[in-house]
């Protein structure tokens, strides 16, 4: 029931989206595999995360949200 600001569709309820979480760079040999695949920053505060608007425009969005308040920020 949270509102997610979709740049294509406007504010929509969170149930329309899949929250994929923080962007995950692919393993590129520069870091240990576990670091690349599993590790998360899991920051408390402003985070950039990927959302998929599954039941809307089906776009993958990078949105900024504060994980300590749940507020989306510009």
């Amino acid at each position: 029931m949270r509102l997610v600001p979709c740049p294509t569709c406007g504010p929509r309820e969170a149930g329309e989206f899949v929250c994929f979480g923080e962007p995950r760079p692919r393993p590129d040999g520069t870091r240990p595999l576990a670091e690349a695949i599993y590790a998360r920053d899991n920051l408390k505060g402003p985070v950039a995360e990927l959302w998929w608007h599954r039941a809307g425009c089906r776009r993958w969005l990078t949105l900024r949200r504060n994980s300590a308040t749940n507020a989306f920020v510009e």
Binding site: M1, R2, E13, A14, G15, V18, C19, G21, N42, K44, E49, S67, A68, T69, N70
Partner: peptide, 13 residues
């Protein structure tokens, strides 16, 4: 809840 968060508040859905 399906969205990571430190906020101890749940989603009504």
């Amino acid at each position: 809840d399906p969205v990571p968060s430190y906020v101890q508040r749940g989603d009504f859905a």
